[in-house]
Simulated assay, not measured.
Amino acid sequence: MKLVFLLFFFPVTLSVKHSLTILVTVSSGVKNIPDLVGVLLVDEVPVGRCDSIRDQAEATQDWMKKLVEDYPEHLERYTRGCLFIHNNYKAQIDILKKQLNQTGGVHILQNKEGCEWDDETGEINGFDQIGYDGEDFIKFDLKTLTWIAQKPEAVITKHKRDRDRPKIERLTSLLTQRYPEFLMKYLDYGKSFLMRTDHPSVSLLQKTPSSPVSCFATGFYPDRVMMFWRKDGEELHGDMELGEILPNHDGSFQMSVDLNLSSVTPEDWRRYECVFHLSGVKDDIITKLDKALIRTNWEFPAGPVIGGVVGLLLLAVCITGVFIWRRRNNGFKPANCFRLIIP
């Protein structure tokens, strides 16, 4: 009881971690898409990009465009980096293919590097991680200033990188000094966008009459949220599946939480509700489980026209999705739609 009393009168202040992340994907054996795509993200929001077709970095948010107008060296730096990485990583894929006795086929090399800054403690953590063919391969350890092989095949690469001390010194400076400086500047320019609070629209969706009911929230910002189903006011832990928080094209986010209704009688539906909580916002968004509110798609025919449009949309999304960093224990994971492009 004393602990509860103290927590009630002295609430805990949650710190916010800001991040700068550069994601690079280089592919081999994939036709009709750029073999390099790079994305710059601030607080998980894409603010710049480059690819091997244009070989020119570009800002994708209005506030970032204003920054590169004031500091054109930022755009020039990322353009040079894009060109260097393209040539260097294509060579790295060839080396890995020989090292792993791979001949032909589709191969993907991904790099995730940048830094995180805790706005309360001031702690800065840099990271540099490489994945190959959708799996963790090797990462840099700032504490020991050495590379860590994340699978046996990466040991050769680890030893080679550990011997290059000048490169390790440059990387350490980049992760602990240069990237944090960039992040502070970006947060200053983008604060009106990055520090905002956007409430979502919440819908109930169901694919078929026997499918789980999905509570889907989209358009919210920031991505510090909680979402769950509850019954009679109590949060559920079983019969529920929470999805990932995913980015929208406009910098907002989306997520969903599914509820399995196979063992729930129709008369008990009224006892369930979906709860969406946005950090820093007092009132939750509560959506009652009501059959009349569920949006479905099984009543609509998927004719040739609809099917063609959906097919084009899927292709566009999947081409982009190949290069989206997917998190699984902070590691690499192949984008699901990649299988739609490459059977």
Rank of each mutant, 00 (worst) to 15 (best):
N329W: 05
D133F: 09
H86I: 02
E44T: 13
R77I: 04
V257Q: 00
D162F: 05
A59P: 07
D94V: 08
H159F: 08
E116D: 13
W298D: 15
W229I: 06
G190R: 02
E235M: 10
H237N: 07
P222S: 15
L313A: 14
L313Y: 13
Q150P: 01
D164K: 11
T176P: 06
K143S: 08
G105T: 05
K191L: 04
G104V: 06
W63F: 12
V16T: 14
L20F: 11
R163Y: 08
R295G: 08
T218S: 14
Y78Q: 00
K158Y: 00
R295C: 05
H86E: 11
E169F: 04
A149V: 09
L261I: 08
D232K: 12
L278H: 09
L278N: 06
I286F: 10
F127G: 01
S210Y: 11
I33D: 07
H107E: 04
G307Y: 04
T296F: 05
L96V: 08
A217R: 00
S262P: 06
C115H: 04
E241V: 09
C274S: 01
Q110N: 14
T79C: 11
L312M: 12
D188I: 06
K98N: 12
L109F: 09
I93Q: 00
D188M: 09
I285S: 06
W147A: 00
M240S: 15
G308W: 01
T320Q: 12
D133K: 07
G81D: 01
E123M: 15
F8E: 13
K207S: 13
T296C: 07
P247M: 06
G233N: 02
H18R: 11
I138F: 01
Q110T: 10
H74Y: 14
K143A: 09
N297W: 07
Y189E: 05
S214M: 14
N87H: 15
R327H: 12
L142E: 11
T157G: 00
E234P: 04
E273N: 15
D133E: 07
Q150W: 09
S52Q: 06
R54C: 09
G233L: 02
Y179M: 10
E235D: 10
D188R: 08
L20V: 08
D164V: 06
K191C: 05
G38E: 12
R49E: 03
H18Q: 07
N111S: 15
F300P: 00
C215A: 12
D250H: 13
C50T: 02
